[in-house]
Write a protein that binds this DNA or RNA. Structure first.
Length: 848
RNA sequence: GCGGGUGUGGCGGAAUGGUAGACGCCGGGGACUUAAAAUCCCCUGAUCCUAUAGAUCGUGUGGGUUCGAGUCCCACCACCCGCACCA
């Protein structure tokens, strides 16, 4: 390489090999240093690394390298979330085995990651489709079964007719399969479940201790868990049956004027011999589930003719089948209090049921007429017999107490969270390690027979579960009685695989899923970084597995991730053309003709043209990179042009990490220029030069502290800005000891961010060790303090002048200096000074 | 509908209640060069202006607290995200 130009095509590989050969980033759990576990959400091996991965892993990498330089033993592993439907889809489309497809993708993506120079401990790499990994998962699953956390039940499931599989509630979006987009159907199947609801209270309470998680994510989980407290009680019905209902507002019980049950409630079903009832139930099922449809859906009811007896007044109330009552929440039946619940209000208005006021602002307002909507707010109870005058809270407690004393109801907690249905009728997943025996029932596979491995010879020509169709795989002997039996052919939801992988990274004995002593050394993960799209599913399941495993005595850790960071997406503007459908001039007649990728387009400051024909293309919004919009930039191509460090620097610059990062060609060019600028600067260290530059030295010491703080806070964009400032100051400075110090400081500060450049420069200075192993520079606290400060002088709230004063100058002298300013005097223009506010080392504000 | 977030130059964005626009990108001007690339220097919120000076306005809108508000409070607007008939 030439001296005045940094050549990443030579340097990147050289240092990547040096780190690998030296085991630089291999974590030693026996090291006598404080430990730090840095983890990014592991990728699904879909084929290629994309910019989103690069951004995610660059952030973790900077943290990991910085922690190492700061004296920590760092665990920064990588692996593959390798089970999942894309592999099966590929198998169907391309006629390759899911395993072969997955392995080849892993190989390619691993090479891509290495090309970016991530400080990963590859010795701990695994894929969740490795029999060793999923075998341990099967063992843990059996442990959970034995602890009573796994059960089977016949249940209505979300059936995806395209993927031919069951979906979790979380995987159904607006009534459609999250992956296939197909309309989801209801089916009854025998399913395996994990008792996540046993941990609902814990998972909710645990959120309170997660100080370093984004509030947004905690709130989303809180809403998902959905705790509510209230009263469950039964109405006596005119047909002799009992109708259990659940309410969060027992205080409004005197305002109840009807009952409503879900269309699939047993009582409704029992009446369905009546054609009118059956027709109404059918009508309720038709309603769409999209946001817009629900918003506008009219409240519909069918009067069953049955009446319910009010527990206090004894009054009969009509019982309706209603389309707005959900069977799978509470008891599937509600008491309708139209005055204080908006849905009940709409319903009562439509069917002309009484709307009584039982909550008012104060007792004097007891007879105030109701408006045109329900009053859900706080107040005092009125028109409610013994509750009159009580606060809402007191009345709730009182009614619950009365119900419990009277034995007709009890205070209960209801959760929105459902148990986790983990059965998938799919091939490419962890086989559920159980055997069905006609005489012994359900029998776990003995642990010494684990792993239950997937058969290799499967076909994907027909939809459905290949394990079910396989000629021999499912047939086996019962471990208990030795008779003929069949294996469970369901596999575990892929979210299971990602629910404990961080434990396996921390510790990987051959004969157990993990070693509790090693777990104790590394867990919890100190920084967990990934996309916001996992705010609920993955993060809740991982928290559940960790708690469940702790519950059955596997280790002490309760929460897996001490700090969570959700990074923004990498975005790019879209390029497209419209075409006209007809000859009219109306712009509305134009429809999308097609999208163009950034490398098909020449982008100028005032627009964009297509390379092939030189004609303009439309420049659209800046949105998430996606193949369908063609606004993707391939990391490999960029790295080939600019090297790994320029790309890494781009990922860290400008946008705060939690926000979206707009990719731009100009931006990466700028990063490339900075790489070369640093290279020239690093070449200017001259140890023979003499000369002081206290201001520069001070800047360098301040940067050491500030950049460290910024990295710890993951404010990479701020760290980048400070490094630019120090670089510019060092460039301008006269050569001498302090300049050399400043340049060496820059070299160390950029080492976590641009490690190849830093290593190359470090080696050029004659070091035969790695800068990756070097210590973060020490700072001199005395050098952090300026001895001169700039003081702002304000008058009438505006800046009039600035003066330079020694740090810590007394108020009186600052005031005198301020008043001595000619500009200030001009602004004052002889006005009478009423007050002077002096903030030491900051400003003087003169009030007239 | 409920909950949460965001709003600052042409763009990405800085700013413990104390000099708004750090830093980067774009743009303009200049130096070097036969030329280009590369590099370096200067300018770059708006308006006014008697123009190296000076003034006014300016952080979504309208109020408020304060000597002083991008920052705190109240009301509103726009956009984004999550949940959604959850009793």
């Amino acid at each position: 390489m030439t001296d005045n130009r940094f050549d990443p095509s030579l340097s990147d590989g050289r240092w990547q090999r040096a780190w690998e050969d030296g085991g630089t980033f291999t974590a030693d759990s026996d090291a006598d240093k404080p430990k730090s576990y840095i983890l990014e959400m592991f990728p699904y091996p879909s084929g290629r690394i994309h910019m989103g991965h690069v951004r995610n892993y660059t952030m973790g990498d900077v943290l990991a390298r910085f922690k190492k330089m700061s004296g920590y033993e760092v665990l920064h592993p990588m692996g593959w979330d390798a089970f999942g439907m894309p592999a099966e889809n590929a198998a169907m489309e391309k006629k390759v085995h899911p395993g072969a497809w997955t392995r080849s993708n892993i190989e390619g993506m691993k090479a891509q990651l290495k090309r970016i120079g991530f400080a990963l401990d590859w010795t701990r790499e695994f894929a969740t489709c490795d029999p060793e990994y999923y075998g341990h998962e099967q063992a843990l699953f059996i442990d959970m079964y034995e602890a009573g956390l796994v059960y089977r039940k016949s249940s209505e499931v979300n059936w995806d007719p395209v993927d031919m599989t069951v979906l979790a509630n979380e995987q159904v979006i607006d009534g459609k399969g999250w992956r296939s987009g197909a309309e989801v159907e209801k089916r009854k199947l025998d399913q395996w479940f994990l008792k996540i609801t046993d941990f609902a209270e814990e998972l909710l309470a645990g959120l309170g201790e997660l100080e370093h998680w984004p509030d947004k994510v905690k709130l989303m989980q809180e809403n998902w868990i959905g705790k509510s407290t209230g009263l469950e009680f039964s109405f006596a019905l005119s047909n002799g049956e009992k109708l259990p209902v659940y309410t969060t507002r027992p205080d409004t019980i005197f305002g109840a004027s009807f009952c409503a049950i879900a269309a699939d409630h047993p009582i409704a079903q029992g009446l369905s011999e009546n054609a009118a009832v059956a027709a109404f139930i059918e009508e309720c099922k038709k309603g769409g589930t999209t946001a817009a449809e629900l918003e506008t859906a009219e409240k519909l009811g069918f009067d069953t003719g049955i009446t319910a007896r009010h527990p206090f007044t004894g009054e009969p109330m009509p019982v309706f089948i209603a389309n707005f009552v959900l069977m799978d929440y509470g008891t599937g039946a509600v008491m309708g209090v139209p005055g204080h619940d908006q849905r009940d209000f709409e319903f009562a208005t439509k069917y002309q049921l009484p709307i009584a006021r039982v909550v008012a602002k104060d007792v004097a307002q007891a007879d105030a007429p109701m408006g045109d909507e329900a009053e859900a707010g706080d107040g005092v109870i009125v028109n409610s017999d013994f509750l009159d005058g009580m606060s809402v809270e007191d009345a709730k407690a009182d009614v619950i107490a009365k119900a419990e004393q009277g034995g007709w109801g009890e205070g209960t907690t209801v959760w929105r969270l459902r148990d986790w249905g983990i059965s998938r009728q799919r091939y490419w997943g962890t086989p559920i390690p159980f055997i069905h025996c006609d005489s012994c029932g359900i029998v776990p596979v003995p642990k010494d027979q684990l792993p239950v491995t997937l058969p290799e010879d499967v076909d994907f020509e027909t939809p459905g579960n290949p394990l079910e169709r396989h000629a021999t795989w499912k047939h086996c002997a019962c471990p208990k009685c030795g008779g003929e039996a069949v294996r469970e052919t369901d596999t575990l939801d892929t979210f299971t695989n990602s629910s404990w992988y961080f434990l396996r990274f921390a510790s990987q004995p051959a004969d157990a899923p993990f070693d509790p002593e090693e777990i104790a050394k590394w867990m919890p993960v100190q920084h967990y970084i990934g996309g916001i799209e996992h705010a609920i599913l993955h993060l809740l399941y991982a928290r559940f597995w960790t708690r469940a495993l702790a519950h059955i005595g596997k280790f002490e850790v309760k929460e897996p991730f001490a700090a969570l960071f959700t990074q923004g997406m990498v975005t790019h503007e879209v390029y497209y053309r419209m075409k006209r459908m007809d000859l009219s001039e109306s712009k509305d007649a134009a429809v999308l003709d097609g999208y163009y990728s950034p490398d098909e387009v020449i982008r100028a400051s005032d627009g964009a043209t297509l390379k092939t024909d030189g004609q303009p293309v439309e420049v659209g919004r800046v949105i998430k990179m996606s193949k369908s919009k063609k606004n993707v930039v391939d990391p490999d191509a960029i790295i080939a042009d600019y090297g790994a460090d320029a790309v890494r620097w781009f990922m860290l610059s400008d946008s705060p990490p939690e926000r979206d990062l707009p990719w731009s060609e100009a931006g990466i060019e700028g990063c490339w220029r900075f790489v070369q600028r640093l290279w020239r600067l690093f070449g200017q260290i001259d140890d023979s030069a003499k000369g002081e530059d206290k201001a520069l030295a001070r800047k360098a010491h301040q940067a050491i502290v500030a950049v460290a703080e910024d990295i710890e806070a993951l404010s990479f964009n701020k760290a980048v800005a400070r490094i630019y400032e120090l670089t510019a100051a060092a460039e301008k400075a006269e050569s001498g000891e302090d300049r050399n110090f400043a340049i060496r400081t820059v070299m160390h500060l950029i080492a976590p961010m641009m490690p190849h450049l830093a290593e190359e420069a470090y080696a050029k200075l004659g070091h035969d060790t790695l800068i990756a192993d070097a210590a973060w520079p020490e700072h001199d606290p005395a050098m952090l303090v300026e001895d001169e400060v700039t003081i702002a002088i304000q008058h009438k709230g505006k800046l009039r002048d600035t003066i330079t004063a020694p740090k810590g100058a007394p108020k009186e002298s600052l005031e005198a200096l301020a008043l001595a300013s000619e500009k200030v005097q001009r602004s004052l223009d002889g006005a009478e000074i009423r007050k002077v506010i002096v903030v030491p080392d900051r400003l003087v504000n003169i009030v007239t």
